[in-house]
Nucleic acid binder design. Structure first.
Lengths: 337, 337
DNA sequence: CTGTTAGCGCATTCAC
DNA sequence: GTGAATGCGCTAACAG
């Protein structure tokens, strides 16, 4: 091959062009104070003349800091994970960090482990794990303590900081709202049992009901999908005495709504329906859905905050940051008949 | 500070432990053929004993390959971008590449430029730009040719390969379906004018109508949001002679459905409605939505394919890969009265 | 204020 | 088959 392949200019080239040492170029690039104004100007001129771009890989090798954060997530197509990751990215970028993402297809502990290993080898300064399943969470129990890690939505391991939205409280808000409307009890279409969120929402639902001394109906098991909600809705429509349903997310609530509509059950006329997530669509469901809003932006910001603190200050104290959810009341709930 | 900070083991440590040169360790790590089986075993034992992890940053510095791909995107919360990125990640991972993501808040050319610069400095081997707006697309016109780039959804620049879904054809499928059902013409709720997809869908709609010799109604301008569809729906409900509406995405179609429902207009009884995207929810809208499905997984795979080819083989020929969409007929469309 | 000297951890020549 | 040099591009000590 011919050797006329244009090599990208390096610091030494800039130094030569500007008539200084490569060290001075480095100083200019890193905003070091001890550089005379005219020297700085000469260097900057040389940089733009040559179209020089610094090599962050070389810098990372010597500083042992890549200014890159890793994110491990599961199914980034879902609204929750997607929103969380978006929040993380914005916060990271604001703090001058890159984000390297590994999104898992399956949620076994091994996958999470591999992803973390992978990211660690790549030299990320810290890792956010968005894998809210028990199986994934378990993978965090025995980690090499080399790289700071923060988890979104709980974990069993005590010494990993956690940022999460208070799922239990969210569910309690829902149940209290429904009971205040005069409903005798509330049925529940749950999320997949391995998910921490599903567990939290179920727990909040159950505890709020028990506290009020109400009967706790058998929950219907779902998997977050609209279809699961649809199937649950068919069952509920055929059941006696159902007046209020709490679906563990908005997609399933949509399915419930659809099934009730097909069966000719008026909502909220005969049955009130509540969801969880407040996806952008839910305001325009038929009827507009009462649901629980989560502040994913806050979750992302907190993750980065905690992570950067760990990176800068070492281990630090264990933390558990809980973001409160809010109830959004729309037209799918009404007083019991 | 005390110096008992446990340094991560490096290759030299493994070499010492195994009684070989660091060179041999490197050979074992990279599956070089010229290593005796027992030597390999000794090295591997030393690696696991020490818990050694290779340093990809150092490797990248010397090989000039980071095995990382950059992705620039806009609002990864939207279904389309999120799905595309997911597809890209899966394909990249399958090919042994990391993915580093920069998601933009605003869509100006400057932001895209900055993101690409940023990624280039970080040493990514290639970049996928998912920024389907004219303004972003324009930023690709004058790029330094250092790093291979592929765009998702068109660009003006000739020498950048493009992978896209055939928006025009998707819209034509919709219109033909509606005309076959006997509708005289089709109204359109469009996406934001700066978006290439919005433009393509509008063009397909218009051309299919013109080819059939039908009148082309004035399109209603939307912004992808359900609310925009809702407002358009209100207008359409109050208009004379509307029997078929094509919303440029499913979210707006949902808004249209909602508005028509409020106004007591039966769908598809009096008006047929079609969307675009086939989001997971659309099957459970009331009524289930006829829409256009896009294969985002294929888009992601093609992107990686093209990019890796460019990385390995240099510039290569310009390409424009078009993925065909498919029409999914459900219950929101019916023969015209 | 600026230049010189090291070395980050690894892969790539070459020897042997 | 294995080991010894050399350098990727940069920042971090030190000099001066």
């Amino acid at each position: 091959m011919g050797s006329n392949k244009h090599r990208m200019p390096v610091m030494a080239d800039v130094a030569r062009e500007a008539g200084v040492s490569h060290q001075t170029v480095s100083r200019v690039l890193n905003d070091h104070p001890n550089v005379r104004a005219d020297t700085r100007a000469r260097v900057e001129a040389a940089i733009s003349r040559l179209g020089y771009r610094r090599n962050l890989v070389a810098r990372a090798l010597v500083t042992r800091r890549s200014r890159t954060l890793g994110v491990v997530s599961f199914d980034t197509t879902l609204y929750g994970p997607a929103s969380t990751i978006y929040g993380i990215q914005q916060a990271a970028r604001a703090a001058g960090y890159f984000v390297s993402i590994v999104s898992l297809k399956t949620i076994d502990a091994e996958g999470v482990r591999d992803a973390i290993d992978y990211l660690t080898e790549q030299g990320v300064d810290g890792i956010v794990v968005v894998a809210p399943q028990h199986s994934a969470s378990r993978a965090l129990e025995s980690l090499p303590a080399d790289t700071p890690v923060v988890a979104v939505e709980g974990t069993h391991r005590a010494d990993i900081p956690v940022v999460c939205i208070d799922q239990v409280e969210g569910a309690r808000l829902v149940v209290r709202h429904l009971l205040e409307l005069g409903h005798e009890t509330v049925w529940h279409v749950s999320g997949p049992s391995d998910w921490l969120e599903a567990e939290g929402r179920m727990e909040g639902w159950r505890s709020a009901l028990e506290e009020a001394g109400r009967q706790v109906p058998e929950p219907l098991a779902g998997d977050w999908s609209p279809r699961a909600g649809y199937e649950a809705g068919k069952i509920l429509a055929a059941s006696e005495g159902v007046t209020a349903v709490f679906a563990a997310n908005d997609q399933m609530a949509l399915g419930v709504l659809r099934a009730l509509s097909e069966e000719g059950v008026p909502v909220p006329g005969r049955i009130s329906v509540v969801g969880f997530d407040d996806i952008p669509e839910s305001e325009f469901f038929s009827p507009p859905l009462t649901t629980v809003r989560q502040d994913f932006g806050a979750v992302g910001r907190h993750c980065i905050e905690v992570l950067l603190r760990r990176i800068d200050a070492g281990a630090g104290s264990d933390e558990r940051l809980v973001v409160p959810p809010t109830l959004v009341v729309r037209s799918s709930t009404a007083p019991a008949r």
